[in-house]
Design a protein around this nucleic acid. Sequence first.
DNA 1: AGGATGATATCC
DNA 2: GATATCATCCTC
Length: 181
Amino acid sequence: MLPRAFYNRDTTIVARELLGMHLVHVVDGTARVGRIVETEAYLGPHDLAAHSSKGLTARTRVMFGPPGHAYVYLVYGLHCCLNVVTEGAGSGSAVLLRALEPVAGVDARTRGPGLLCRAMGIDRRHDGADLLSPALHLVAAPVAQRCTVVRGPRVGVAYAGHWARRLLRFCIKDSPWLSRP
DNA sequence: AGGATGATATCC
DNA sequence: GATATCATCCTC
């Protein structure tokens, strides 16, 4: 299981290193496992694309909390999105998980942050959940594989001015499981 | 190109 | 208390 220290580091580094890691959620005794192929870094209150740029509110409370916890919110009224909180408490930074490659126990689409949550059985009840728990956590992939990482601008944040152009989206090159090419 | 669908922030 | 705005996904 990835230790708390993994998350308590620079958010851009965490976003890149999460590629290839496995997300594990045990539901009804069955482990659902997916390999992370796409992430986005949200750097803190100064990042106008980050929810934490609105300040500390009921919604962003978890994002301002300690690292290694799940920040889950509802977007567009229908879809949940899963983020992992990074850096020290108060930093307001997190990494959005955008797409998974199914590994085990997953029999649904996982391309895109909303579908990822649906397939993994993650919803707003998991907001604030500790990611160092038996039922929900991340692990290093059992087989060390080297993969080429490509960077690009984050999706759906055109409102964020120059922050929209920062290359804070990370993908495993040529993965067929990306939310978009 | 546009609709579903509801929480949130930001005004009044 | 009203409303504009979404870190989406699907169908047309």
